[in-house]
């Protein structure tokens, strides 16, 4: 503690964190929040009731942390992945057998994705039953719905990437539904698959959606979602 305190007194520390330790006054504690890019989305003071576990079950928070884990593991997985046939599948085998902790990484990514779908859905239910979507939070509810849909899409696009039987046929089933869309169903499916059947182009498209487009959308919407929580007077 003493070392930390001494460290906090150095010029370097202060140039980075702009906070003096120890935090003795409420002003100091406010400044921690204020001066930090990552923390400043919080208000300096929160209602005690709102931060109780029983109030929100922290479902939004859990969803966000799962998303964070997904980004970290996802970036690491991207290092070993080629969106090509049959390399994609062979990469999975490599992850399993050769890459250090490769299967652990993939397991983490897979299970957090599943859990995120569940936690986002539960978050929506919590918000609904608590009536937390009511004015003036109507629009944030819609953002939430879009986030739910993006979560599903992210999970779904990622499902194809191992390119094994499981993913191939799951995606086939899903994209077959798309062709029932009236008027332009076949065209939309073609656009999605980059062809009439799942193949190399589908893999590339799903890869770009999964690794670039949807995460970007997600990050922007999450930022907006958080910002709106504050602006609409909610405190987590």
């Amino acid at each position: 503690m003493k070392i930390l305190n001494n460290l906090a007194k150095t010029k370097f520390w202060q140039s980075v964190f702009r906070t003096k330790l120890p935090l003795s006054t409420n002003l100091d504690r406010s400044l921690v929040i204020f001066n930090s890019l990552t923390l400043h989305i919080h208000p300096v003071k929160v209602r005690l009731r709102a931060i109780k576990f029983s109030y929100t079950f922290y479902l939004g928070m859990i969803s966000f942390f799962l998303f964070f884990v997904l980004i970290v593991t996802g970036v690491l997985l991207m290092l070993y992945y080629q969106p090509a046939i049959p390399h994609a599948y062979r990469n999975m085998k490599d992850l399993e057998y050769v890459v250090s902790n490769g299967s652990f990484l993939r397991n983490m990514h897979r299970w957090s994705a599943h859990l995120m779908v569940i936690s986002v859905f539960l978050h929506m239910l919590r918000v609904f039953y608590k009536g937390a979507y009511k004015p003036p939070r109507e629009f944030n509810w819609i953002i939430g719905i879009v986030l739910l849909v993006s979560t599903l899409l992210l999970s779904y696009t990622g499902y194809l990437l191992p390119y094994d039987q499981l993913s191939y046929w799951a995606v086939t089933v899903g994209t077959n539904i798309v062709q029932y869309i009236p008027v332009a169903g076949k065209e939309i499916r073609f656009l999605l698959l980059g062809g009439n059947e799942i193949g190399e182009y589908t893999l590339v498209r799903f890869y770009v959606l999964h690794c670039v487009v949807l995460p970007l959308v997600m990050i922007l919407l999450i930022a907006f979602h958080f910002w709106r929580i504050r602006k609409d007077g909610g405190l987590l």
Binding site: R90, D94, Y97, D164, Q165
Partner: peptide
């Protein structure tokens, strides 16, 4: 050949 576990390499497995 890609695998490094006995059963997966030598024996008929599910996949």
């Amino acid at each position: 050949g890609l695998a490094t576990e006995y059963e997966e390499v030598h024996l008929p497995t599910k996949f």
